[in-house]
Design a protein around this nucleic acid. Structure first.
Lengths: 188, 188
DNA sequence: CGACATATTGAGATCCATCAACCAATGTGG
DNA sequence: CCACATTGGTTGATGGATCTCAATATGTCG
């Protein structure tokens, strides 16, 4: 696991009693069935979803095709970042790829709690930093790797994606056509 | 200008007196000559640089080629994000493309000040959110736009880049070969 | 002026997308 | 439980976008 994630976990574990109590009671559990939408395009993303069990994806439509931007597994935080941060309509959908359980945190409530418990702002910052570092890595891959290099890289870093997600979504996640991905896999 | 940047400016303007005093005295001005390095690969990025005057770029080397990841103008914040955040060796260089003046903030000092003045943590969060949103936009461009669409998009959104930065750097910033960029421009 | 960096243009090769046909697995209503 | 639809994946043929290599042009600065 990424060492910064560990640091974030440690930070949560070592929160003072009050902050910790708030943090643990802020996010009720919800369940969604396979195919359900957690967020639709043009809606404001007012919740963040901590994936407890199952798989989900985030995507948008471009020229009629859907472009997968993120794939979520256990312990990932599903949210349409720009929509959530600016509280403006989302360009993206978030959809359950299997039945899922999630811990749901309300944006407005979290904002209030951050004002009362500054440690939560620090936590928010750490999570955002982690996301930015992840985005930089993704950008590096698009900037410098060929289609098959991107696939091999994914296979190495997140084999669970290749194992559990339909190739159609993996292809669009990697910015490759389904056919090309199929041929890349055949060659290995 | 992006509306979230305006919100950040307003936040800085409206800081309480103490936070504001700290913020304004934390960052001495420095000057660099054209070609100077603000950061080199393998060094830890211990400073952030607020560009006051001039142009700079961030890049890394991949297969002997240099890949420009960001171009900085007045009021931009130059920093190798992962290196700065995790205080680990940088993959990237930051270099002055013209003579520049920058306000330099030390990482360690800023961390200490954040502990004393929680408003600075909020500010840090806002800046990081802004960077993450910018990264998402970049990723969208690589994910869905063709070479010429990326160039036209840049021309529209940041004409100052096309005006002042050598085509070599623009091409690598867009993930295009210099020759292809030259042909795209000839066709317009 | 000479030297070095920067940009243009041409020719050929390569990667990858698209379109189309086909295949396999799964599930559902009758 | 079969027939058929649906979803997900493969394979082939072709074309277009973009890269690479090479030659030439233009610009800039000591």
């Amino acid at each position: 696991m990424h060492s910064y994630l560990q640091k974030i976990r440690d930070f949560i574990t070592n929160l003072d009693v009050d902050s910790s109590k708030i943090f643990n009671n802020m996010s009720p559990i919800q369940h969604f069935a396979k195919g359900d939408f957690l967020l639709k395009q043009d809606d404001v993303c007012r919740k963040s979803y901590w994936i407890i069990r199952g798989i989900a994806r985030k995507y948008y439509l471009h020229d009629g095709k859907d472009i997968t931007t993120e794939l979520y597994f256990e312990d990932d935080l599903a949210v349409s970042f720009e929509s959530y941060t600016l509280q403006k309509p989302s360009k993206e959908y978030i959809q359950a790829l299997t039945d899922i359980s999630v811990a749901v945190t309300d944006y407005t409530l979290f904002q209030k709690m951050k004002q009362q418990f500054p440690k939560l702002t620090e936590l928010d910052l750490m999570l955002t930093e982690y996301y930015a570092i992840w985005l930089e890595e993704r950008l590096f891959e698009f900037h410098t790797l060929s289609a098959s290099e991107r696939y091999l890289n994914l296979l190495e870093k997140q084999p669970q994606i290749v194992q559990f997600v339909p190739l159609t979504h993996i292809a669009s996640y990697l910015g490759i056509s389904l056919e090309t991905l199929s041929r890349i896999r055949a060659k290995i």
